[in-house]
Amino acid sequence: MSAVWSITKKELVSYFTSPIAYIVIAIFILLSGFFFYSLVWWFNTQALQMSQNPYYFQQVNINQMVFAPLFHNLSIILLLMLPVVSMRLFSEEKKMGTEELLFTSPVSVIQIILGKYLASLVVLLAMLVLSAIPTIFTFIHGNPEPVPYLLGYLGLFLLGAAFLALGLFWSALTENQIVSAVLTFGTLLLFWVLSWAAYSARGLWRDVLNYLSFFEHFDGMTKGVLDTSDLVYYLSFAFFGLFLTHSVIQFRRWR
């Protein structure tokens, strides 16, 4: 375990001594702040109009009208930005020749993978926590339900964790960081559009496509429903990504 932590620490030093982490976090906060602001503004005008009619006023719900769309927007931003976080994890080691140091140390490949993955999760966590600060004010000035709010952030974290595992896999395959980022980005987009394909598909095929799509599983969480199958989906996706990373590294050395 201490070996995993050593690798994580080293990765975090790399993240936070290079501009990458700062830029990614700053832009994420900026965009999420913008979306949050415009959604709250839109919510206020809507609420004002709806207050004219007692029936509609019952429908005013800050969770449904602000947070659910905010989480959907943030999930797309994560899809665009997390490949940049994961791209250097193995690619850079390979390019710099430092992987030879790692793989000749008495540390297992699994520990190396976990250490790196954990560091990228810390960056993700920093993005989410910092971007959540403005949203706390809705609890001071209003009364949103905390459960769907928290579940939404949990959903974003799980989604991001799955993205990063996939990114880790691609970075283990190439020594070029750009290639690694583009491949991650491409694969993530593919999983995104699976849900579009599902609309036109029928029967079992439709169920399969829907199950594989990232965002189908995310939808429930933004509405405050925690389904274990969604949880299993994200965790198994992340696990599968790490497993593939391990296989790729072993295969490269043993061929």
Binding site: V13, S14, T17, M96, G97, E100, T104
Partner: peptide, 11 residues
């Protein structure tokens, strides 16, 4: 072990 490319982290 010192590999041919010295494995250093410049940062």
């Amino acid at each position: 072990y010192l590999p041919e490319t010295v494995p250093l982290y410049p940062e």
